[in-house]
Nucleic acid binder design. Structure first.
Lengths: 227, 227
DNA sequence: CTACTATTCAATTAATTAATTGAATAGTAG
DNA sequence: CTACTATTCAATTAATTAATTGAATAGTAG
């Protein structure tokens, strides 16, 4: 039976919407989107971070590119990928937030992994921002510096985890330290808090990443400056 | 090589996130979610609306249910499905909005289908709301009444498309009429506007559905009353 | 121009997903 | 209890997706 025009229109519309859905139907592509939400990266770098072969990473990036979620630019022999628009990072975040609220298994996995690693205290974001502005608390961004430069919580200083051990002297001992990284499923900040506490600092972990901060309408800065 | 605990944790987290992605990777499931975002429906009703067999519809609903996006309750021999949480409807909308902004093909398909059917004028939502409150414009919800009752733009009256022809006398001729339905890819409102104009009414189509209205922080009412 | 680097592509194999069909299940009217 | 309704499940077939491997491509240093 010939489809009526309305039905054909509907089918085509949902096929288009499904292009986005299919792009995010793979754990590997979701991890790549998560990483790219923090800033641009090369294929080799992404492969390394996500524990994938370069060929497989490239394949997944082609799929994301076909769905217009990421873009690429050549830099010599390197190809640097980025999210095509901030809206893509926001979409990734909304998928993550929905999963967190709907899938008890995700909560269990996370609780089990982070147990005893840090004290996740409910942080009042506005209060934290106010205290940052008054210089009463130190907010540490423990991601790689390129991610910091791409966007960081306004007022945060960059102190990558791998450099933390030898730069402890730069940190104040008379005030609280709040460390953050890429979001609730990133372990960099938890490791940082662990190390800081071992050296007697008063440190807690902020679950938010930059996209969460921005989603709550809070200020995000770019470049090397804290604000 | 044995995976380190961090890598295993990451893999499990993204596998969980992918449960959501996989659930929305099918055009058919996206249509079902779109329909359910407007209000609860039975399997048979969904199958009819989406042009699927009952068995296939049921299969897709099991998949959405496994991802905790929809819930079901028995009513006699009928099973009525609903979105598990308003956040699911909001997520569907964010996927739709992202697709609209990223996929030129979707725009082309839509423009081609709606060409000449209605005048899509940019509607200032706040201004429209103010005019509704002053009684200067009539907002028509042309979806089925159950969808109206589940949630409608505050101030809208329910006048389902199939009943429009014989209820034209209820409509004012001395003021503008704004018709809406399920969102930018629903054709009910466009058809309503066409019919209204043929009978000399001043009518335009509002692209927004209820989830768009709510996403913009605008008031949504439930039940039979307009406000 | 050669030999390297990083990346992408194509072919292959394996795994997953989708629709159909008929059976099974659950609820209910008479 | 029977015969109906609506829905779900399982088996089957077909289509799609995913990872690997080796080849191909593009850029560049010397």
């Amino acid at each position: 039976m010939m489809k009526n025009p309305k039905r054909m229109f509907k089918d085509r519309v949902y096929e288009q919407l499904a292009r986005i859905g299919k792009a995010v139907a793979s754990p590997q592509r979701l991890e790549l989107l998560d990483l790219l939400s923090q800033g641009p990266r090369t294929v080799e770098n992404l492969a390394q971070e996500a524990h994938l072969t370069v060929a497989n990473t490239s394949r997944h990036l082609q799929i994301l590119r076909a769905a217009r979620l990421v873009e690429a630019e050549k830099e010599g022999v390197f190809v640097r990928y980025r999210v095509a628009d901030e809206a893509v990072a926001d979409f990734f975040r909304s998928l993550r937030v929905l999963a967190a609220s709907r899938l008890a298994e995700l909560d269990q996995i996370t609780r089990h992994f982070f147990k005893d690693r840090d004290a996740l205290e409910p942080v009042d974001r506005q209060a934290l921002l106010a205290r940052v502005r008054k210089g009463l608390v130190t907010v540490l961004d423990v991601r790689p510096p390129e991610e910091y430069r791409s966007g960081h919580i306004a007022g945060a200083m960059s102190l990558p985890l791998h450099a933390l051990q030898e730069r402890l002297a730069e940190l104040p001992r008379n005030q609280d330290i709040v460390a953050y990284c890429r979001g609730p499923y990133c372990v960099l900040a938890a490791q940082a808090v662990e190390l800081l506490r071992e050296h007697g600092f008063r440190a807690v972990r902020l679950e938010d990443g930059v996209t969460d901060w921005r989603a709550h309408g809070l200020p995000v800065a770019r470049g090397d400056k804290a604000f």
